[in-house]
Design a protein around this nucleic acid. Structure first.
Lengths: 252, 252
DNA sequence: CAGTGGTCTAGACCACTGT
DNA sequence: CAGTGGTCTAGACCACTGG
């Protein structure tokens, strides 16, 4: 609960969200799973209704509760596995599974970007970029090939690293780099010669590909990555709530 | 686009979000892409700051703008393709691409659910379920096999349909069924004999699989589906914004 | 230090649900 | 019709950014 020295106190609505999350996990709210009204919750916790709504919005985004005008909210799911996307880092993802993340840097090169790369990283033509090729392991078993492209100023921080360093993302974070927004695209590709050699599969074997493009707070691209996973090692999950645009009342 | 007679006027913050979206697409906000302050926008549109914040929250969730305490918001991306997940229906997705969606129902059966299915649909053991197997086409080309499991009360609406009906989801929606929450899981599988025969690929060919589990507003499962796409026909995209937990000021 | 977004409050009105 | 969540307002204070 207490915040580590130097940080800011956690917002009340986040504390409240955490409390409600616990209550849900503990199975309060009975068999039908109906939450108290927003007003009731506000009174119970001594906050305003607005704050309660902020907290509930968090739970809703996480797929834990419903929300619909006219009726109480209802518990949707009690469990909650953290989505791959929210973790933003292979290392954190592995740890959240209780597995041991590993990484071996195969190659790091700096060279001028080609036109496609310039567009992806929003750079001037001919700008320098840093290319990193890594093999990622889970409890020593190879499961993913990561091809990452960094703009010069980020690449400079990477270049000097120990090739056995486990997490580049965490090191960059410590340097104050913030991955504020990321877009992920998932599809299926066939292993090329490098993929096959490093992952120990046949060439043309099917792989799950996740491409990530991350920017900082001001929208400046920080990274563009092409990650290829062996089948059966990851599944990507997404949750979705409708924008409640209900119809008019039926047979009023 | 317009709401059918009897609907409610669109919320102001949604109208505002749409306006801002247009402004972004039109390239207002100059080369640096900095938005006006929330206060300014509120004055310009004659609404309160709270409403502006609601509108901006929508844009942020869509990955269009950043947000960060202390600085103006910044345009992240001008384009905006509607994510596969938001459309919630193969038919709508196809139409949004300007393609012609098609579907052929291969088989519909009603029988008691097995234990796994009962758990997925949260049913009493031995409950009746409805299984539907469909082949989906895009401009007449087969691209996806859909295996959907409905609980009895939904299955009853499906059973009587024309086998050539294009969209089951839309028909259910017209009947007042609301898919309020959906969870998607994406992975890679190999084609079984049925997949291969219907999609015209080899057995064991790699396919992208999307499993969906949808519930209504009260959390009652409406459907559980296993959809398998031929490679190269879809890519799944997700956007991600960090919960701005910045560090303390650096060398203040 | 001025500007800006994040958090919080208190109150109001409305749309929708279920009985 | 009573209860509930959705929308909107007006104002306040704070934390953080950048010059």
């Amino acid at each position: 609960m207490a915040v580590a020295g130097g940080g800011t106190a956690e917002a009340r609505y986040r504390q409240l969200a955490a409390s409600l999350r616990e209550a849900i996990a503990a199975g309060a709210f009975g068999a039908d799973g109906r939450l108290p009204s927003e007003e009731k919750i506000a009174q119970q916790y001594g906050v305003s209704r607005g704050t309660v709504r902020q907290a509930l919005a968090v739970l809703r985004a996480n797929g834990l509760v419903t929300s619909r005008r006219g009726t109480r909210r209802v518990v949707l799911g009690t469990a909650r596995t953290q989505s791959f996307f929210e973790l933003l880092s292979f290392t954190r993802w592995a740890r959240s599974l209780g597995e041991e993340p590993g990484g071996r840097t195969i190659d790091v090169t700096s060279c001028p970007a080609n036109p496609l790369e310039c567009e992806q990283l929003n750079l001037e033509p001919g700008s320098q970029v840093c290319r990193v090729l890594r093999l990622r392991t889970l409890s020593r078993v190879p499961i993913m090939i990561e091809r990452t492209l960094y703009p010069e100023h980020i690449g400079a921080m990477i270049a000097g690293l120990d090739p056995h360093a486990i997490s580049h993302t965490e090191l960059l974070t410590e340097e104050g780099v913030v991955f504020a927004d990321t877009e992920h695209t998932i599809d299926l590709v066939h292993a090329d010669a490098d993929d096959a050699r490093l992952l120990g599969c046949n060439q043309d074997a099917p792989l799950m590909r996740e491409r990530r493009r991350a920017t900082d707070h001001s929208g400046r691209p920080l990274l563009w990555s092409d990650d290829r996973f062996l089948p059966g090692t990851v599944a990507f999950t997404v949750h979705n709530s409708v924008a409640t645009t209900a119809l008019s009342r039926r047979r009023g």
